[in-house]
């Protein structure tokens, strides 16, 4: 079976979708966003297709497309649907699969279940996206603890933003976690620039190997 990689983040709006697009492009993968909240603006799937340069058929359909840009549990309630967490299985595909969660680890999908519970059931390796700006050390270390507490395999941390060598170092030391790389802020987010930047910052093989 091909690698299945779950991309999550310490917080919302940190560039997780840009990273997912770069990773999916570099691995020539399929991309899946199980739950999309908010349909007014470009959805994450649309953004990933645009930025990854992948053909449209690599972007798998969302399982839930919810109108309101809010936490999935609330967006679903507004639309009058309930997210069936038990049926939220990873799709079987021939290529590597990049799965993107929402916001952070403890984003609720229903009034009982958060994303991290689903990640634990999938048991696929996680990539934790973290920003480099002030406050990231605390957010990232807390996220790592939550992941470890549930026994979810963690590939490592992907930093996003300007270089902050000390923050990146203290996170990898205290978190006993691998630094996968750092995607800098880019002037242009077209597919070619993004792939070029990803190649400079990460080794795609790091995402295809078993978690040590």
């Amino acid at each position: 079976m091909s690698a299945r990689i779950v991309v999550t983040g310490t917080d919302t709006g940190i560039g997780k979708t840009v990273f997912s697009a770069a990773l999916a492009g570099a691995l020539d993968a399929n991309y899946w966003k199980p739950v999309q909240s908010g349909l007014e603006e470009e959805t994450d799937s649309q953004a990933v297709q645009r930025m990854s340069g992948l053909p449209a058929d690599r972007i798998l359909a969302e399982r839930y497309s919810l109108k309101t840009p809010a936490s999935p549990h609330l967006a679903a309630a507004i639309d009058g649907v309930t997210i069936d967490v038990a049926a939220l299985d990873l799709p079987e595909v021939a290529r590597p699969l990049v799965v993107e969660g929402a916001g952070g680890l403890m984003v609720p999908l229903t009034r009982e279940v958060t994303y991290i519970d689903v990640f634990a059931r999938w048991a696929s390796p996680l990539v934790l996206c973290a920003r480099t700006t002030l406050g990231t050390i605390n957010h990232t270390l807390l996220s790592i603890e939550a992941i470890r507490a549930r026994g979810i395999p963690l590939l490592g941390v992907a930093f996003l933003g300007d270089a902050m060598p000390d923050s990146e170092a203290i996170i990898t030391e205290l978190g006993r976690v691998r630094r996968l790389g750092r995607l800098p802020r880019l002037a242009s987010l077209d597919a070619t620039s993004l792939r070029a930047a990803f190649v400079d910052a990460f080794d795609p093989q790091d995402f295809l190997k078993d978690v040590p």
């Binding site: 570099a26 691995l27 190649v199 080794d203 795609p204 295809l208």
Partner: peptide, 11 residues
């Protein structure tokens, strides 16, 4: 089929 070009580049 296509190889993982970025991984080969990293090598």
């Amino acid at each position: 089929d296509s190889p993982q070009l970025d991984a080969l580049y990293a090598v």
